[in-house]
C-alpha cells in the first residue's frame, strides 16, 4: 500500500504530501522521539500526538512512510513547511492514537 492509498482509506486532513507514493508497511506509535528512532522500521506509519519542529527531522531520518498526528494536534505552519522540504508526509486526524491504530490494523 502507498501513502496515497492509505489516505483514501482513512480520509485524514492532508497537511503535507510531498511523497505520496511511498510504500506503507506496519505502524509504530509513540511520542518520545528517541524511542521512535530506536523502534520504528523503515516504511512504518508513525502515529503520534507530538507536533513540534523536531517531528519532520525524526520522520525523515527514520524513513517512516508518513506521520499521522492524532487528536487534531495541528502543528505550526513552519513544521508543515519543513515537512514539505524534507519529503515528509503528515496527516492529521481527530481520533486518538489508539483509535488510529485500530483503523490501521484493519487496513495494513
Amino acid at each position: 500500500m502507498t501513502v496515497n492509498q492509505l489516505i483514501t482509506h482513512l480520509n485524514p486532513q492532508v497537511l503535507s504530501l510531498p511523497e505520496g507514493d511511498k510504500t506503507v508497511r506496519g505502524c509504530y506509535t509513540g511520542d518520545l522521539l528517541s524511542w521512535v528512532m530506536g523502534k520504528t522500521r523503515a516504511c512504518n506509519v508513525w502515529v503520534t500526538i507530538m507536533s513540534n519542529i523536531n517531528v519532520p527531522a525524526v520522520a525523515s531520518l527514520a524513513d517512516v512512510s508518513c506521520v499521522i498526528i492524532g487528536e487534531n494536534a495541528r502543528p505550526e505552519d513552519d513544521v508543515i513547511a519543513m515537512a514539505e522540504a524534507r519529503g515528509v508526509n503528515i496527516l492529521l486526524m481527530p481520533d486518538s492514537a489508539y483509535d488510529i491504530c485500530i483503523k490501521l490494523s484493519k487496513i495494513l
Binding site: 518520545l32 522521539l33 528517541s34 524511542w35 528512532m37 530506536g38 507530538m50 513540534n52 523536531n54
Partner: peptide
C-alpha cells in the same frame, strides 16, 4: 517536553 531526553540517545547510537 520536546520529546527528547528519554534516555535512549546513547543506546540508539550503539544500536
Amino acid at each position: 517536553s520536546l520529546g527528547f531526553g528519554a534516555g535512549m540517545g546513547l543506546p540508539n547510537m550503539k544500536r
